[in-house]
Amino acid sequence: MYALVPLLLVLDQVTKLWALEHLSPVPKPVLGDLLYFTLVHNTGAAFGILEGRSWVLGWVSLLVGAWLLWLLERRPPPLTAWGLGMVAAGALGNAIDRLGRGFVVDFLDLGTPFPLVANFPVFNVADSLVTLGVLVLLLARKR
């Protein structure tokens, strides 16, 4: 899993570069009303908290990512390693944005009318990796 972290980081950064080159703040439908591509420069954290504090969030993300890589070096069980690797890649991907650009590039926009996700924030691959990684870690803990 340790080797997968750089591949996930590349995937995150390539999709963000693509978004910066090809998207705008105007939502572009991808899957009907289910998914849009909408370019957002996020200077805060999820749901708009800590707006304008990118440098603080960047350093926190970098430290968390480095700590998770250190935990991976200790050779945890496979499912735990997958979860740690995904969260590490997501944290480091957003740290690169925050420290390098001053904002996180978000572009995945759930445009559904379903109540739970109707006003869901625009997100990116790194955010998805963090979410999936945490779910995998929760599953690993249950075993």
Rank of each mutant, 00 (worst) to 15 (best):
Tyr2His: 12
Tyr2Thr: 15
Val5Asn: 11
Pro6Thr: 13
Leu7Gly: 10
Leu9Thr: 13
Val10Thr: 15
Leu11Glu: 04
Gln13Pro: 05
Val14Ala: 12
Val14Thr: 14
Lys16Ser: 03
Leu17Asp: 11
Ser24Gln: 07
Lys28Gly: 03
Val30Phe: 03
Asp33Ala: 13
Val40His: 09
Val40Ser: 07
His41Ser: 10
His41Arg: 15
His41Trp: 10
Asn42Cys: 12
Glu51Asn: 14
Gly52His: 08
Arg53Tyr: 13
Gly58Val: 04
Val60Ile: 14
Leu63Glu: 12
Val64Ile: 15
Val64Ser: 09
Gly65His: 10
Trp67Gln: 06
Leu68Asp: 12
Leu68Thr: 11
Glu73Ile: 06
Pro76Ser: 08
Gly83Pro: 00
Gly83Asp: 00
Leu84Phe: 03
Gly85Pro: 07
Met86Phe: 08
Val87Leu: 05
Ala89Arg: 01
Gly90Phe: 02
Asn94Arg: 03
Leu99Ile: 04
Gly102Met: 09
Asp106Trp: 00
Asp106Asn: 01
Phe107Pro: 01
Leu108Ile: 07
Gly111Trp: 01
Gly111Ala: 10
Pro113Met: 04
Pro115Met: 08
Val117Met: 14
Pro121Asn: 09
Val122Ile: 12
Val125His: 02
Val125Pro: 06
Leu129Lys: 00
Leu137His: 03
Leu138Asn: 02
